[in-house]
C-alpha cells in the first residue's frame, strides 16, 4: 500500500490529501465541528426522556431525608406505569411501614395503616413537603415528560469532573407547568442528565437536582441516586437511592386500583 502511494506523482498526492481530509472532515463533523447552537436540543431532551422513561418499571429504593438536624431513611418499593401511574409501599422505618401512595393521573392518595384511612392529597395539599423531604407531593406527581412540557435550547457547554456537558435551557410550553424554566446539564453522547436547576417564574433558583452514578440496566443508563436540594433552605437535602431497578415488568392491575389502599 505504502509502495503504491509512493508511486503516485507528487501533484496527485497533494490532490489526494485534500480529498481524503475533506471526506474525513465531512463524516466526523458531529464530533469536531458542531457548535452548541446547531444541536437539536429538543431531540436531545427526547432522547433523555426515552432513556429514563419505560412503559413500566419497578424501583426498590431509599429516600434519605436530611433536614440539617437529623437524617431519616425511608425504604420503599415503587411500581410505575408510564408517567401517569405509580404505586409505592413504604417498608421502613417502623412508623412509616405499610404507608402506601397511589398516583393515578392527576390524583394522589395516601394510606396510613395507623389511621387505616386513605387520604386524597389534592389541590394545594400537593404543594406540601412529602414526608418532610425537599420534594413536594407535586414534584413527585410530575406526570409530563420534559420533552412534552418544555422547549429546549442549548445555552452553553460546561465541564464537570472532566466531562463536557451541554447546558440546556428549558422553557415551559404552557403557563401551568410548575417550574417555568430549568437548566439541564446533559451528556450529548450518553443522552443522560448530570444535574438540573429548577427556577421560579421570576428566575430565582429554587431547587438543584444531581443525578449520580449512572449504570447500565438493560439498554438504558440509569442513575444510582438522585439528590434534591431546596436552595431556599440551608443544610437540607433529600437523596433518592435506587437499589434495584427493573424495566418493562408486569405489574398486577390491582396495584393501580384504590382497593390496594388497605392493610
Amino acid at each position: 500500500m505504502l509502495n503504491t502511494i509512493s508511486k503516485i506523482p507528487a501533484q496527485w498526492k497533494k490532490t489526494l490529501f485534500i480529498l481524503t481530509f475533506s471526506f474525513g472532515a465531512f463524516f466526523s463533523w458531529p464530533v469536531f465541528f458542531i457548535s452548541a447552537e446547531e444541536i437539536d436540543a429538543n431531540a436531545l431532551v427526547r432522547a433523555v426522556d426515552e432513556n429514563l422513561w419505560a412503559t413500566t418499571k419497578f424501583i426498590a429504593g431509599r429516600l434519605i431525608i436530611d433536614n440539617g438536624r437529623r437524617v431519616r431513611t425511608l425504604k420503599m418499593d415503587t411500581w410505575m406505569q408510564g408517567v401517569t401511574r405509580s404505586y409505592s409501599v413504604y417498608k421502613s422505618p417502623a412508623r412509616e411501614k405499610g404507608t402506601k401512595m397511589l398516583k393515578r393521573d392527576s390524583k394522589l392518595w395516601m394510606y396510613t395503616p395507623r389511621t387505616d384511612r386513605k387520604l386524597l392529597i389534592a389541590g394545594h395539599l400537593l404543594r406540601q413537603s412529602m414526608m418532610g423531604s425537599d420534594l413536594s407531593y407535586e414534584d413527585m406527581m410530575e406526570d409530563k415528560k420534559l420533552s412534552k412540557a418544555y422547549n429546549a435550547m442549548v445555552d452553553r457547554r460546561e465541564t464537570i469532573e472532566g466531562k463536557e456537558y451541554l447546558v440546556l435551557h428549558l422553557i415551559a410550553n404552557d403557563k401551568t407547568t410548575t417550574y417555568q424554566s430549568r437548566l439541564g446539564w446533559v451528556d450529548p453522547e450518553k443522552k443522560i442528565v448530570r444535574k438540573e436547576e429548577l427556577y421560579a417564574k421570576s428566575g430565582k433558583l429554587l431547587k438543584k437536582v444531581d443525578y449520580l452514578d449512572y449504570r447500565k440496566i438493560g439498554n438504558r443508563l440509569f442513575p444510582k441516586k438522585v439528590i434534591f436540594r431546596d436552595t431556599l433552605k440551608t443544610n437540607t437535602q433529600t437523596t433518592y437511592v435506587f437499589d434495584e431497578i427493573q424495566f418493562d415488568v408486569d405489574i398486577p392491575k390491582k396495584y393501580f386500583s384504590q382497593s390496594i389502599l388497605k392493610r
Binding site: 401551568t176 417550574y179 421560579a200 417564574k201 421570576s202
Partner: peptide, 15 residues
C-alpha cells in the same frame, strides 16, 4: 427575605 408563592395557573414563583 425570599417569598415563594404560586400564581393562578400553578406556576411557582419566588422573589
Amino acid at each position: 427575605v425570599v417569598l415563594k408563592w404560586r400564581d393562578k395557573f400553578g406556576a411557582v414563583d419566588a422573589r
